[in-house]
Design a protein around this nucleic acid. Structure first.
Lengths: 252, 252
DNA sequence: AGTGCTTATCGTCAGGCAGACGACTATGAT
DNA sequence: ATCATAGTCGTCTGCCTGACGATAAGCACT
């Protein structure tokens, strides 16, 4: 079939972001309130159109910066500064996913430490960190008894896929450190795993595992007592990317 | 920002396919010869435009059927018939990846048994199964001493990503059975792992591992001797999707 | 029929790792 | 001083894996 510009239909291409963080022992995602129809007033994932001269990763990094002020760092470089981890998640292109027109959305997954306060175009009331469990329970009732509106478009599916990706990826990679500040303790890292997986882990076995995996953690020499109790050693993320053998999510 | 149809640039959206199979102890991918510029005469991955009313998965399944005659089966259903496994791989959207226009390609990964003969629009000379190793060695020389032209566009990157996905996915899932016919022996399954990973595995430990994993293999009662040697039991793929604990790729 | 080759299948053994859990340490709060 | 809280180090046991010996059951020869 020869090249014919009229042979293909035009699409709009967007990037949507699943930005995850751990706050107060819960896995949370960034949600923004929609200001215009469709789904006006609903919560949605942050995102926007890909520009004409932009790569997909660039567009995702730009949106991340616009929504959170975070800078995404190069995926090839280990987590060191406060830049968030950013990776492509999956692409969603159901013909009816956007009632206005044919939109293909390339979803990206970002993992960030707890520090930044959300800001959507400077308006904090239109962006929030919400526990993913709360965002995903569609049509139910939240902790305050108020009915919970489901996320706009197919964003619940995208969020669920992103959460599942994060849950499985911290098993066999050192990505859990992306949820931590530059310096952190073994206990803080353990609480990240516990929040993401929603389980309790044995502190002693966890400590043995992570400190025994070469390249996972690098001691900085300092200690901290910000969690109370005995002072804990501080670590930075080491150069290792893949954990072998992996961390094992407890059964059942 | 209110909705404005002129606010986003139009894209063409395609699906490209990494179709993998195991032939003669080698991991092979389906390549088609391009009949028109750019990259006329070069080998490329099969693919095509997504139609206006089509989901991405539908488009990928349609292209797969057009190129190979295979039917993709529902990903939620375990591999049983001769339908190939099909899953989304990643999306490639560099502004310059296609010199003609802005094209975003949603790559899919298909795993198929060895049976089908390639056909590209009925013309067999324009499609072939090539060892991935041969397709990926850009600018080198093939086994016949002829110079090897690299794949068109960014298809070498897409193929490499697909191969890596397949290599890692057979570790922790039962997907290797997608490379096998409906009924197969433990030895045939082992040769799949050996071809995909490019390593030699101990037949005794492999046998113990796969037959000891609940739900991985279901004996059909029959035996075969098509590999020579002692007759081997025949199995079908069981219902298990995730292997726990996983198959381990040998180190080094 | 016997020999040799090939592949399949079962068994054994030692090392490593994970889960369960005891014990001790070092802080802050009362 | 005592307690509560976290962190860290050990021990033990069971499971899984890698290495590898041994046997089984076909086919192709002679």
């Amino acid at each position: 079939m020869p090249y014919d510009p009229s042979a293909f239909p035009p699409f709009a291409v967007t990037v949507d972001l699943v930005v995850l963080t751990v706050r107060r022992h819960a896995l949370c995602a960034l949600a923004v309130r929609r200001g215009e129809p469709p789904f006006q007033g609903c919560w949605a994932l942050p995102g926007g159109f890909v520009r004409a001269d932009e790569d997909l990763a660039q567009a995702a990094a730009r949106e991340l910066a616009e929504e959170t002020g975070m800078r995404a760092h190069d995926p090839a470089v280990p987590v060191q500064d406060n830049g968030a981890h950013l990776e492509q998640l999956a692409t969603y292109g159901d013909p009816k996913r956007d009632p206005r027109m044919r939109v293909v959305s390339v979803a990206h997954l970002a993992l960030a430490p707890d520090l930044p306060a959300p800001r959507a175009g400077g308006d904090a009331s239109n962006a929030r960190w919400a526990p993913v469990e709360e965002l995903l329970q569609q049509g139910g009732y939240g902790r305050d008894g108020e009915p919970v509106a489901p996320l706009a478009f197919d964003h619940a599916q995208i969020l669920a896929d992103g959460v599942e990706r994060a849950r499985s990826k911290i098993e066999y990679s050192s990505l859990a450190t992306a949820f931590c500040p530059t310096e952190f303790t073994v206990g803080e890292l353990r609480r990240v795993y516990e929040a993401v997986w929603g389980v309790a882990l044995d502190p002693r076995n966890f400590h043995r595992k992570v400190t025994g995996t070469p390249g996972f953690l690098v001691p900085t020499g300092g200690t901290t007592t910000r969690q109370g109790g005995r002072p804990a050693q501080l670590f930075r993320a080491g150069g290792a990317t893949l954990l072998n053998p992996p961390m094992l999510r407890p059964e059942v």
